[in-house]
Design a protein around this nucleic acid. Structure first.
Lengths: 71, 71
DNA sequence: TATAAATTTATCGTTTTTCGATAAAAAATT
DNA sequence: AATTTTTTATCGAAAAACGATAAATTTATA
C-alpha cells in the first residue's frame, strides 16, 4: 500500500503548469517535481496547505491511499 | 489557513481508541496524540498510509484544508 | 470520591526527510 | 533545430518525525 500524490488532475483542471504552480506555492520546480512524481516520503503541512490554496482543493484531491493490488 | 488533522471522526466511526490505533499503526501513543491534536507540522506518507489502512479510509477523511476565517 | 487507566504534554537524542540551490539530463513545445 | 519546461541528481542545512521516557492531565471506573 502507498500514498499516491495526484497533482496532475487538479493542475489540469486549473490549467496551471508545474513551473507556475511551483512559483505560486513558493517551492522550487525541482521539489515540486519530486512531489508530483511520488518521490517524496513526507510532506509538510505548510506545503500541502499552499498547494490546496493555490489549486483551490482539499488534501483528498491530491493524496490518495491505494492498496498494492488496486488500480 | 492550515491543514487540520481530523482523526477523531474516523476513530469514532471505527470505535477505536488512541491507544489501540497507536498500537495498530505502530507509533507511540505520545506521537499519535501530537498528530491527533494538530501539533504536527508534517507527516510521513508511511504513517499516513498506515493510518488510512487501519481506519479504512482515505487521506481526505483525515486531512482538511481550512482557511483561517472558515469554520 | 479515590483509584486506576488512558491521554496529553514535554524533553532529549537520533534519524529521516524536506527544501533550497544548483546543474545536468530528458522531455515537450514551438 | 532551438527553446522552454520538466525531471533527475547531488550537496548541505534546517526542519521535523519519531522513539523513549517521564510527568501532568484528563477520563473512566470501582
Amino acid at each position: 500500500m502507498a500514498i499516491i500524490v495526484n497533482l496532475d488532475v487538479m493542475m489540469a483542471k486549473r490549467k496551471i503548469s508545474s513551473g507556475e504552480l511551483a512559483e505560486a506555492v513558493g517551492i522550487t520546480p525541482a521539489n515540486l517535481s519530486i512531489l508530483k512524481n511520488n518521490k517524496a516520503k513526507a510532506i509538510r503541512f505548510s506545503t500541502l496547505c499552499r498547494l490546496c490554496e493555490e489549486l483551490g482543493c482539499q488534501p483528498g484531491d491530491i493524496l490518495e491511499y491505494r492498496k498494492d493490488d488496486e488500480e
